[in-house]
Design a binder for these strands. Structure first.
Length: 295
DNA sequence: TGACAGGGGGTGT
DNA sequence: ACACCCCCTGTC
């Protein structure tokens, strides 16, 4: 099979502040998305929906290219996927960093961090896989799901199965993709979504609290996963996912020792304001880096 | 090189 | 609180 021809490298529409390598790595492989892989050349190869893109950083500018067969559709999808229409300088500046030295430090630490705007349904699938799993394992599950059950994007790369397709897959076959107890949740969720056409699209369009409540009605989806789906798959920057990492980080950095997740959620909304999820992502990135440095 | 614990970014009961 | 699954990682 011949290697697919790739489009020329092209700049992504410019927007400030500039990208940096750490921020790009954290954005693509820090727990928002699970289908980006660093290439030997240092660029990143990512798959979503029917798109395949390679991105790289040159002189603080982001460039992309795609297999010729999907270059048009990928190029059209990229600005939305990378939230290129958002003025991140203004968004970040509106966070309460002036009165929060720790937040200010995290913002300085990852100047290129973004919140991706991934396809809603795929984001739900990714985070249904995420319970008590680390990023490498989630990526492995999704890679298996795509390779065994997803349609071809270009030779060598497959998309994730749609929810309609997932509804037709026996639970045992899902388990074979290393999903463990999550296979049952995904199977049941797929049956529900398949039986309620338009439900996902409607949910994505609802106001934040209503959308979250609807997601939480799905088997295997609790508050944390619902918030991740809304933050990374619907652009709801007010969603503030509280997991054990953020629980520990907030305890250590803001003195919230012994606080329960619901209390930390409330604190986050009040303290960080309407873009609490954006602030959370910077805190999260900083804690991850600290943990990695520690070994 | 291989076996063996231990624990894991959550949800449901 | 504990089960749910089972892969990853560190360790011997």
């Amino acid at each position: 099979m011949p290697a697919p021809a790739w489009s020329d490298w092209q700049p992504l529409p410019a927007f400030a502040p500039p990208w940096d390598a750490a921020g790009l790595a954290e954005t693509l492989d820090g727990g928002q998305a699970f289908r980006w892989n660093r290439q030997p050349t240092g660029s990143w190869l990512g798959l979503w929906a029917g798109c395949a893109a390679e991105v790289r950083l040159t002189n603080d500018a982001l460039q992309w290219r795609a297999p010729a067969a999907v270059a048009t559709v990928t190029g059209a999808a990229l600005p939305r996927y990378f939230a290129a229409q958002e003025d991140y300088g203004a968004l970040v500046d509106s966070l309460p960093w002036r009165s929060d030295p720790h937040l200010a430090r995290c913002l300085r630490e990852f100047p290129g961090l973004r919140i991706l705007r991934q396809p809603f349904g795929e984001t739900l699938l990714g985070f249904l896989c995420s319970a008590t799993k680390q990023i490498v394992q989630i990526k492995q599950m999704l890679a298996l799901l795509a390779s065994r059950h997803g349609g071809k994007i270009v030779p060598g790369h497959r998309r994730l199965p749609t929810w309609s397709e997932l509804a037709e897959i026996p639970e045992a076959d899902l388990r074979a993709c290393l999903l463990g107890f999550r296979a049952r949740y995904i199977h049941q969720t797929a049956r529900f979504i398949a039986g309620h056409p338009g439900w996902l699209d409607e949910t994505e369009a609802l106001p934040y609290f209503e959308a979250k409540a609807r997601l939480c009605s799905l088997p295997g989806v609790g508050e944390k996963i619902a918030d991740c789906v809304l933050l990374f798959g619907a652009g709801r920057l007010e969603a503030f996912p509280v997991d054990v990492w953020i629980l520990k980080a907030m305890a250590a950095r803001y003195g919230l020792h012994g606080w329960k997740p619901a209390q930390v959620t409330q604190f986050g909304r009040v303290h960080f304001g309407p873009l609490a999820g954006l602030a959370q992502q910077y805190l999260f990135a900083s804690e991850r880096r600290a943990a990695q440095a520690k070994g």
